[in-house]
Simulated scan of single mutants.
Amino acid sequence: MTDLHPVKQETFNTADRLNTDPKGFLREVDTYTVTDFGLYMARGANHPKFGYLESWLLPTLGLRANIFHFRDGVEERQDYYLDIAEITVDNDVWITRDLYVDLISVIGEPVTVMDIDELAAATSAGLITADDAERAIDATLNAVEGITRNGDDPMQWLRSRGIDLTWADTNQIQLVPAE
């Protein structure tokens, strides 16, 4: 049984260097970079499992690509965590609506698709429209096919599409203490 919840929405205010997370908490952002293909965000996180978060919002692909910088002792097998999302931009504010499906990537291994059951349940419960669900499925299939055809490497797939994502030097990242 899935844990049914409304669509998680998040805002990224590049002018004020703020991020409002899905629970409504206002987070200060270290870095925002706007490109012709998306938005990069880097910020600290006081989460028990990770202390820093990097994300790229890629509206044309319906993806949010993430690197979670985990705390010592946290064992998570992932190089990239990809959220399937609807992404809109209104001046300096980017808005994501998480469409339930997540992809977990370990380079060189088949990508893992998570939470299709949540997408189905949310659609059945009327939390998202059939059009939203169709966009989520299309974005998922597009990403899985692209990643698979590029050696199970999401960054190689994105580069093949002219999208070259840059990430922070991990030696320069300071994890924020957990609360």
Rank of each mutant, 00 (worst) to 15 (best):
T60E: 15
T60F: 08
L61W: 03
L61V: 08
G62Y: 02
R64E: 14
R64Q: 14
R64N: 11
A65H: 05
N66V: 02
N66R: 08
I67V: 11
F68P: 04
F68K: 04
R71T: 11
R71S: 13
D72Q: 11
D72F: 10
G73H: 13
G73S: 13
V74R: 12
E75G: 09
E75I: 10
E75W: 13
E76G: 09
D79M: 15
Y81T: 02
L82C: 12
L82V: 09
L82Y: 06
D83K: 04
D83R: 02
D83F: 01
D83N: 06
I84S: 03
I84F: 00
A85W: 08
A85F: 08
A85T: 06
E86Y: 01
E86R: 03
E86Q: 05
I87R: 07
I87K: 06
T88L: 13
D92M: 12
D92K: 06
W94S: 05
W94T: 04
W94E: 09
I95W: 08
I95A: 14
I95G: 07
R97S: 07
R97I: 04
D98G: 05
D98S: 10
Y100A: 00
Y100L: 05
V101K: 02
V101R: 01
V101N: 04
D102C: 01
L103F: 07
I104T: 13
I107E: 13
G108R: 07
G108S: 11
E109A: 15
P110A: 12
V111L: 01
T112R: 10
V113N: 04
V113Y: 04
V113T: 06
V113G: 02
M114W: 03
D115C: 04
D115E: 09
D115I: 02
I116N: 02
I116C: 01
D117E: 15
D117G: 06
D117I: 03
E118S: 06
L119R: 00
L119I: 00
A121P: 03
A121V: 00
A121K: 00
A122Y: 00
S124C: 13
A125S: 07
A125H: 04
G126S: 08
L127I: 04
T129P: 14
T129M: 14
T129G: 15
D131F: 10
D132T: 04
A133F: 04
E134F: 11
E134H: 12
E134N: 12
R135C: 12
R135W: 13
A136C: 08
I137E: 03
D138C: 13
A139V: 05
T140K: 01
T140I: 01
L141C: 15
L141H: 13
N142L: 02
N142A: 03
A143K: 03
V144G: 06
V144D: 08
I147K: 03
R149T: 09
N150I: 09
G151Y: 11
D153E: 09
P154I: 09
M155Y: 03
Q156Y: 01
Q156H: 05
Q156P: 05
Q156E: 13
W157E: 08
W157T: 01
W157V: 00
S160C: 08
R161A: 12
R161I: 10
